[in-house]
C-alpha cells in the first residue's frame, strides 16, 4: 500500500497515514452499508409481534389437551391428571434415552407445554396415544411419555418445551 518510492519528495509517513485512514474508513463504511442489507432479512417487527402468544388455560379440563399455533408450529398444552403426573415422575433416569426430570419439563406439574414437532423428522405426533399413553408419532413410530419424553422409536430427543411464563394462574405467555 505504502509505495513512497520514485523520487517523491513528500513525507512518506503522512502519505501512509492517509492511505491507512482511507482504507480504514472505507472498511467501516462498507460494513455500515452491508449491515442493513443483512439485517433486513431478520424477522420484521410485525413478525416479532406475533412471536409470543398468550393462552387462556381456564377452559381446559383435567385430562384434556389443546393445540395452539405458535410461530407456525403446533404447541400442545395438556392439563395432566394426577395419574399422568405420577407416571411421568416415577421413571428411572436410566430408562430414558434423553434423560430429563419431569419437574424441569413442567413448571407446574398439572400443565405440560410442548412444541408438537417430532424430533425425528418433523411430523406432528398424535396425543393420548402410544405405548406410554403420551404421544405417538405415526410417521416412524416414536413413542413419547406423559412428560413428552422419547421412550421408544427413532426420535433422538424429547419433545422440546418452549419458553413460557405464567402470567397468572390461568394465563401463560409462550415465547
Amino acid at each position: 500500500m505504502a509505495d513512497s518510492t520514485g523520487g517523491d519528495t513528500h513525507d512518506p509517513s503522512r502519505r501512509d497515514f492517509l492511505y491507512v485512514a482511507a482504507a480504514g474508513l472505507g472498511a467501516v463504511g462498507t460494513v455500515g452499508f452491508v449491515w442493513p442489507l443483512v439485517d433486513q432479512m431478520n424477522p420484521s417487527q410485525d413478525v416479532l409481534a406475533l412471536s409470543s402468544i398468550e393462552v387462556d388455560l381456564s377452559g381446559i379440563e383435567v385430562g384434556q389437551s389443546i393445540t395452539v399455533s405458535w410461530r407456525g408450529k403446533p404447541v400442545f398444552i395438556r392439563h395432566r391428571t394426577e395419574a399422568e403426573i405420577a407416571k411421568a415422575k416415577d421413571v428411572a433416569m436410566a430408562d430414558l434415552p434423553d434423560p430429563e426430570g419431569d419437574d424441569v419439563r413442567a413448571e407446574k406439574p398439572q400443565w405440560l407445554v410442548l412444541v408438537g414437532v417430532c424430533t425425528h423428522l418433523g411430523c406432528v405426533p398424535l396425543g393420548q396415544a402410544g405405548e406410554y399413553n403420551g404421544w405417538f408419532c405415526p410417521c416412524h413410530g416414536s413413542h413419547y411419555d406423559t412428560s413428552g419424553r422419547i421412550r421408544k422409536g427413532p426420535a433422538p430427543t424429547n419433545l422440546p418445551v418452549p419458553k413460557y411464563v405464567f402470567l397468572d394462574d390461568n394465563n401463560i405467555k409462550i415465547g
Binding site: H10, R15, L18, A21, A22, L25, G26, V28, G29, G32
Partner: peptide, 15 residues
C-alpha cells in the same frame, strides 16, 4: 462520516 471520509479521500487524491 462521509465528510470525514471525503476529506481523507481528497487528501489521498492530492497526494
Amino acid at each position: 462520516f462521509l465528510i470525514v471520509l471525503t476529506l481523507v479521500l481528497y487528501g489521498v487524491k492530492r497526494k
